[in-house]
Simulated scan of single mutants.
Amino acid sequence: MSNNFKDAHPLKDIECTNCDNYHHQEEIKNIEIFQGRTILVVDDNEDILALITCVLKRYGIRVITASSALEAFEIVKKLTVDLLISDIDMPGESGYSLIQKIRKLRSVQIREIPAIAFSKSAKNRAYKQALASGFQTYMKNPSNPTRLITEVAKLLMHSCNRSFSLFGDYSYLRKR
């Protein structure tokens, strides 16, 4: 992978005409929670990357894409990312492995990036494994733009409003 993240820059030339039916442009511009945010989307499928990028860009979100877990891991170590959206089933390293590596990093800011997992599988096992691995939520393939943006908003609002760690420090509950 190159040091300049040539392939990780926001997708600029995506046609977003199909997204026009979901929301009015005036409504989109008034959603402050999305302004100035950067989301990293990870998937080996270019069509899924394009779809998610299209939806997120309509809300004024900067989107960085990666086609593998390895590439995504390098990006989160070097660039500020407000949210991670990752496919679980990728060739080579999985999304589960990616989030586990991120959660072990020393930097709290990086380690606690909110994350959404997605997959083609709707199995309950995939949902449980995603949460156990370190994702905050799981979606079956994000083909529903309204549900996707709702989950993104929930996690971004939660990360803005909290003054405590994503995972919390509950040591004060232990008996002394």
Rank of each mutant, 00 (worst) to 15 (best):
Y127W: 06
K12A: 11
K78F: 14
P142K: 08
Q35F: 15
K154S: 08
P91E: 02
E112P: 14
Q136M: 01
M157T: 02
K101F: 10
V76L: 04
I28C: 12
C54M: 00
R111N: 02
L83C: 06
F167A: 03
H23R: 11
T38S: 13
I113T: 03
L155I: 02
R176E: 15
F5Q: 05
I33H: 09
V152K: 15
A122W: 15
N3P: 05
I113M: 10
I99K: 03
D43E: 06
P91Y: 11
R176D: 15
Y22Q: 10
S68T: 05
S119W: 11
R125H: 14
F164K: 14
R174K: 14
S67Q: 04
L70G: 00
Y59G: 00
V108G: 01
R176L: 13
P10L: 02
V55L: 07
P114E: 01
D7I: 05
D44A: 13
H23V: 13
P142Q: 10
R62A: 11
R125S: 13
V76A: 05
K120W: 02
E46F: 08
G95I: 01
F118A: 07
Q129M: 12
Q109I: 08
P10C: 03
L98H: 13
S68C: 04
T80E: 15
K29A: 05
E32V: 01
K78T: 09
G60M: 11
V55W: 13
L156V: 00
S119P: 15
Y127L: 12
T137R: 06
P114H: 00
G36E: 01
Y59H: 11
D47V: 01
D20Q: 12
V108A: 08
R58C: 12
S68K: 11
E74F: 05
D87V: 02
K120S: 12
D20H: 12
D20C: 09
G95H: 06
R162F: 02
I39A: 08
D89W: 10
L98T: 03
V76F: 09
A50Y: 03
V42D: 11
E46H: 12
I28K: 10
K140P: 00
F118Y: 15
Y96S: 06
R58L: 08
S67A: 03
R106Y: 12
K6A: 07
A50T: 00
E26Y: 14
S171M: 08
Y170W: 13
L56V: 01
M1I: 01
K12C: 07
A117K: 00
I39W: 15
T53R: 01
L105C: 02
I149T: 07
K123R: 14
I110S: 04
L156M: 05
Q136C: 00
C16V: 02
